[in-house]
Computed example of a mutant assay.
Amino acid sequence: MFTVLLVDDEPLVLEGLKFMVDWQGHGFRVCGEACDGEEALERIAELDPDLVVTDIRMPILDGLQLLERCAADPRVRSRFVILSGHEEFSFAHQALRYGVVNYWLKPIDTDEIHETLRKLREQWSEERCQPPVTLPQPNPSPQPEREFPVTGISEELCAAEDGLFLAIESGEGERIVQGAELLATIVRRSFADPAWRKSYLTHFLLELAWKTSAGETGEEMTITGFEAAQELPFFPTDEEAWERQLADLCREAADRLAAQRAKAGPAGEAARYVRRRYHEPLKLQDVAKALHFQPAYLGQLFKKHIGMSFLDYVHRTRIEEARKLLRRTDLKIADIARAVGYADPELFTAKFRQFMNVSPSQYKKS
């Protein structure tokens, strides 16, 4: 049996997790509970659980702070799952730094939880059966803290990413497979540490999830609804298999985009216009004129099919591109604001915080 600690400041959620989830049937035993991050730290030190399921928003010490504290403590061997009612991508982005194995959204989906537990049990049972590894003697000289280099990535990687995104948008299956193979190959060549390689691909898949959720209908795709974010922690040891899984996930994203476009009609045309020219001043009247529609009619169609106003979509598209620049470059915030179409850096910061729940500088550091 693997042990699990449940952490949430809502008693009803704790009760639901205990009684709705078939822990025992999937090889797990609930060994304790905690109502905030500070209490969770004490329980982790006391119980040494295999798995910690923790809420994000809690008093005293929140879930991300708990992850940070545990990641800095070499005595903590527990793995973590994030549980939250908030679907912001920024939470998952920050949590990835600490190696979370999954991200569950409230209300509780027992089928999703059971599938995660099944995979964890298989993976961890296999790890327990491996022969012990003789560790090398520690180097007495101080070593720099390891961080995944999320900014300033090479032009080769940027080109491979962009090429794969274009293949997904075009829906060309052969190009998607070739692009996935190329990206995985360059990632292996670029990062010596397997953890960095997996982290890089995780960021790419989150970027893909964001792009798909910001597609051409109002059908939002949540973190847990996108298989990439669920499956990546369970990639096999054999990295050659990553290419096939990456290609499969990219094909699924391409199929979803194609379905979105089929339903969006003129609103989809307007959305594509915005995504091509987001860095320019954009007004609904000008886009309607370019596409030969009445502005009021196009605005109504846009709201109906895209699920948000034209102006909100412009802002969201700009923030999407800003996220890419924050991850890839060392440009100043003001320069990024101008690059994505904001003359006023303060407006850019406000809109970024609105969509990402963190400031651009916080996102860059996360």
Rank of each mutant, 00 (worst) to 15 (best):
K198N: 03
L298E: 12
D255F: 00
V287D: 09
F293C: 06
T237D: 14
F226G: 02
G173F: 05
R276Q: 15
L298I: 08
V187E: 11
R244T: 09
A253F: 02
L166I: 07
F165L: 09
Q260R: 01
H203N: 13
Q178M: 05
R276D: 14
K263Q: 10
A195Q: 11
L232G: 04
E269H: 01
L282K: 12
F226A: 01
F204W: 13
E252Q: 14
A180T: 08
R277S: 14
G163M: 04
P266W: 04
L206D: 08
A167V: 10
G218L: 03
A192F: 11
Y273V: 08
E227D: 15
V274Q: 06
L298N: 10
R197M: 08
E174N: 07
E239P: 02
G225R: 04
A288R: 02
A209E: 00
L183W: 03
G265T: 06
E216M: 01
E280K: 08
L249I: 02
A264D: 00
G171K: 05
A184K: 03
L291F: 05
L282Y: 04
R189N: 12
E231V: 02
K283G: 15
P194D: 05
K263W: 02
A271D: 05
K198H: 05
K304D: 14
R272M: 08
R189A: 15
S190Y: 10
F165S: 00
F235P: 07
R261Y: 06
A296F: 14
T224P: 08
E169Y: 07
F165A: 01
R188H: 09
D286V: 12
A296W: 13
F302W: 12
F235K: 05
P295T: 05
F226V: 00
G265V: 00
A180S: 10
F302I: 04
S199R: 13
Y273Q: 12
Q260L: 01
L249M: 05
L301Q: 15
Q178S: 09
A253H: 05
P266T: 01
A258G: 03
Q294Y: 13
L301V: 07
L301E: 15
T212I: 11
K289D: 15
Y297T: 15
A290W: 04
L298R: 06
L249A: 00
G215Y: 12
L206Q: 09
E174D: 14
P266K: 02
G225P: 09
L166D: 15
R256W: 05
E181F: 00
Y278W: 11
A288D: 02
A241Q: 12
S199I: 01
